[in-house]
């Protein structure tokens, strides 16, 4: 089948997609966007988290056909080319990246959390951060520096308009 959707603001069209392929597979293997990761392909790890029409989803659980005509946002589209998004910068500054396999999914999940909090004019408390990231597994860091990174990004972007 043919799939047409917008990815990171650019219209993408791919042919010969087999119905059983996930959005994750199409992004990674057909669109040349391997930034979203594939640690479980069962909806358990969050490494494949992308935006679908502005909401974070596990791309491994979305059938490719479900993305038809919709807007997808991946880690590759968080920042303008050559720049870093404040969440990306905070993950680096806090030392929250080790192997980095969890990172793309966590960046999208964190961006979503902070955008929601900013829209309500606040920064998220620790318990809320933990709830928001509970679906994103990381095996390397023990999460402490990921929490540091989220707090840092929240502080740095607190005044930004949505």
């Amino acid at each position: 089948m043919r799939l047409t959707c917008t990815v990171n603001g650019t219209e993408q069209q791919v042919d010969d997609v087999w119905e059983g392929e996930s959005l994750l597979y199409v992004l990674r293997e057909r669109m040349g966007l391997p930034g979203s990761k594939n640690a479980c392909e069962q909806g358990e790890c969050g490494s494949c988290t992308v935006y679908l029409d502005g909401l974070p989803v596990c791309a491994c659980l979305v059938a490719a056909g479900q993305a038809e005509g919709r807007e997808v946002g991946t880690v590759e589209g968080l920042a303008a080319p050559g720049e870093l998004h404040p969440v990306q910068q905070a993950f680096l500054d806090a030392g929250a990246v080790q192997c980095g396999f969890c990172t793309p999914g966590l960046l999208v999940a964190t961006d979503d959390l902070l955008a929601r909090a900013r829209a309500e004019g606040r920064t998220p408390a620790d318990a809320e951060i933990r709830e928001a990231l509970a679906g994103n597994l990381c095996r390397c860091t023990g999460y402490e520096k990921i929490l540091d990174a989220v707090r840092l990004a929240a502080d740095r972007t607190a005044g930004d308009a949505r």
Partner: peptide, 11 residues
């Protein structure tokens, strides 16, 4: 690090 946060690091 920068490659990893941009999703450009080739695993």
């Amino acid at each position: 690090g920068v490659l990893k946060v941009r999703g450009e690091f080739a695993y």
